[in-house]
Design a protein around this nucleic acid. Structure first.
Length: 405
RNA sequence: GCAGGGAUGGGUGAGUGGUUAAUACCACCAGACUGUAAAUCUGGCGCCCGGAAGGGCUACGUAGGUUCGAAUCCUACUCCCUGCACCA
């Protein structure tokens, strides 16, 4: 049953949305009582969903919960083509089986948040595999270069004499065409997608459809606190990562991000958010405590309460108390290849090279049972159950069979 | 096709014949401190041998060349960018 309760709609459109195009029309359509088709596309070249993506997905879920239809577009066609110029590392050319595998990974994560049974999944190749040159030219004929140069990114590069590939003009058109095919009523995207979503509106109008409404979601800053969260910038927290990592990475965000993360990633209400901001301002609650609660909340969302508890325990134990965690990987010494202490570090994958091992040992970073290890240590002296650690995150437990025999 | 500019370590980007494994910044790693894998400060940040001192190897688009010695000079090639020309 479709929920057209005004307060509910106000709540959905009013929280955590950067921009709605056009808000008035969207409200009218939501009040009409007709289920709307909510389009959301994804690129299978980057199959892992991170916290930045969940901002939009949560909103999508809210719409789904009041009875609207989610339409997920698998961008398999564009992923297969990739970026033929080879310039964009984030757009590699993928084979069909890679795309399929990635898509499955994505869907798996997607349905952690979105209700699978109420989702329509469409593969782009369905309509693009038979698309011919005439179709493409017809598509391009609807738009002018001037329209495309309106996009900030294009305008900037054009003015600075930076290259813009023709294909870059094609991608928004393809995305727009997706909207026409699935008869999208609303398209979701980050604020960086604004131009592309607007092209969709225009194209639908040319094709005699009612133009889609665009819901622009804020871009979540990454753990570095400055750039948007992105896997390629290595400042992301993936929702399928190990609970300990989700917890730890969350603890590593700068204090200035606490409030943003609470508001975008949790179900927190306005009052509680105010009180968090308040305590941050006045220093009444320790920022670390707020971060712990946040980290706990996030792990609970993607796993469960128990995992969150144990992730927190792990963090407090290893990072705060600098104690040895449980369940450390065991490394069995092989006397043939583990001739020196540096060999053990490399062979156990604790370090990447002998040189790195030396450096770390010289910096007093490598500990054996909590005591600094020296370069002259002999592997033969190691006992089974000895613990070697580097920093707060690299641990191995020694199994020295040879010795015990 | 013509003219000009460019290609340097994960990224940006210095460096025009030797003290350059290559400035700086970012990212990353470690240490100290702490309130956390925050912030700050310090150190490190190609590979191999060595306890160290030191040595060796590989690296500045590709292939050659000049030179005692080249990221730096020369030749050819590849790729990229900009402008012009061409343009159904």
């Amino acid at each position: 049953m479709l929920n057209i309760d005004k307060n509910c709609i106000n709540h959905i459109l009013g929280n955590g949305v950067t921009e709605i195009i056009i808000e008035k029309e969207l409200r009218e359509r939501m009040h009409s009582g007709k289920p709307l088709r909510l389009k959301m596309g994804f690129d299978p070249s980057a199959p892992d969903i991170h916290l930045g993506h969940t901002v939009g997905l949560k909103k999508l879920k809210e719409f789904q919960d009041i009875g609207h239809q989610v339409v997920l577009i698998v961008g398999d066609w564009t992923a297969r083509i990739g970026d033929p110029s080879g310039k964009s590392k984030t757009r590699p050319v993928l084979t069909e089986s890679q795309v399929n595998a990635n898509a499955l990974t994505y869907l798996d994560q997607f349905f952690k948040i979105i209700d699978k049974d109420k989702t329509e999944v469409r593969w782009q190749s369905e309509w693009f595999k038979n698309f011919n040159l005439a179709d493409l030219i017809l598509l391009t004929s609807k738009f002018t270069v001037a329209q495309f140069l309106a996009r900030e990114d294009f305008a900037k590069r054009f003015n600075e004499n930076q290259p813009i590939a023709i294909t870059e003009f094609i991608y928004p058109l393809m995305q727009a065409y997706d909207s026409v095919i699935v008869k999208s009523d609303i398209e979701f995207g980050g604020t960086d997608q604004k131009f592309n979503l607007l092209v969709g509106r225009d194209l639908q109008q040319y094709m005699g459809q009612t133009p889609q409404q665009c819901l622009l979601m804020p871009l979540l800053p990454g753990t570095d606190g400055t750039q948007k969260m992105s896997k390629s910038l290595n400042n992301h927290i993936g929702i399928s990562e190990d609970p300990n990592d989700i917890f730890g990475k969350t603890m590593s965000i700068p204090d200035s991000l606490i409030s943003t993360y609470y508001s975008h990633l949790t179900q927190i209400n306005a009052e509680d958010l105010d009180s968090i901001n308040n305590s941050l301002d006045k220093n009444t609650t320790h920022p670390m405590e707020l971060k712990k609660q946040l980290a706990h909340n996030l792990v609970t969302q993607f796993y469960d309460l128990k995992s969150a508890d144990s992730a927190q325990k792990y963090f407090e134990l290893t990072v705060q108390s600098k104690e040895t965690p449980e369940n450390i990987d065991i490394y069995t010494i092989n006397p043939d290849i583990d001739r020196k202490i540096t060999d053990i570090l490399v062979n156990s994958k604790l370090t990447n090279s002998v040189s790195e091992s030396r450096r770390l040992i010289n910096q007093n970073a490598v500990k054996l049972n909590g005591v600094n290890l020296s370069l002259s240590s002999n592997p033969k002296d190691l006992q089974t159950d000895d613990i070697i650690s580097i920093g707060k995150r690299r641990w191995i437990k020694i199994d020295n069979k040879q010795k015990n025999q």
